[in-house]
Design a protein around this nucleic acid. Structure first.
Lengths: 112, 112
DNA sequence: ACAATACTTCACTATATGGTGAAGTATCAG
DNA sequence: CTGATACTTCACCATATAGTGAAGTATTGT
């Protein structure tokens, strides 16, 4: 299970690529500190399945887990998401530029 | 290789999770319309390997391929990246950094 | 002490992913 | 026509992923 030289951004995008994991993140956004079994309840998988997803999210730095007594409360960590946003943001210029071009094209078309 | 019931956003994040694919996107950002062999040249994999990555990027809607004669030129498609940004942007208020230009994109279901 | 609760780990399975070499299909050059 | 070029598909392999049931470890309730 050891992973050599996989970059943090790989792990982030990879963690976000699964709908179950995104649902976990969504729920944690509205309700902080949910327990592992709280998270499992609405999902159609068993606890060991969820555990693996939580491991992936932890490895990506997207969640933190703190155990108090026998229950674990899970919380969001937004750092990796900011990094992912930053990566995608490199392309922002590209789609605003193409939008500008589209506008220019439409205006040109109007003139004819 | 047919994938049933995988949502577009899954495919987008999944496509972005690989460093080779991100490098392809980066190169296409600066140089548009590169050919398949242009893209392959600096990479340490064989053409069939690159073909699979290009298939993944196409399936995710991140690139388009147009064949003229025997060469294929590849171009970026930014729509899915905007959707990924929109998804991540739901968390923006949690980290309280204003990425003001994205405000218009917030209107989005989670893509499930 | 004993049992229930809340995870956690283990062993296993099925499928997906990322790579290869070899062979196939057009297209272009001479 | 012949051969080179530019992909494309095929068959195969190793590893990773996502799930399961069963068993294990603390912690809490009676």
């Amino acid at each position: 299970m050891v992973k050599y030289q996989i970059s943090p951004i790989d792990r982030t995008f990879s963690a976000l690529a699964d709908p179950t994991r995104r649902e976990v993140l969504m729920r944690l956004k509205s309700e902080r500190g949910l327990s592992v079994s709280d998270l499992a309840r609405p999902l159609s998988l068993k606890l060991p399945g969820l555990m693996k997803h939580l491991d992936v999210l932890s490895d990506a730095g997207l969640i933190t887990r703190t155990k108090t007594g026998r229950t674990v409360s899970v919380n969001l960590s937004t750092g990796p998401m900011q990094d992912a946003m930053a990566w995608l943001n490199q392309y922002e210029r590209l789609w605003t530029v193409s939008l500008d071009r589209l506008v220019a094209l439409v205006e040109e078309d109007d003139g004819q």
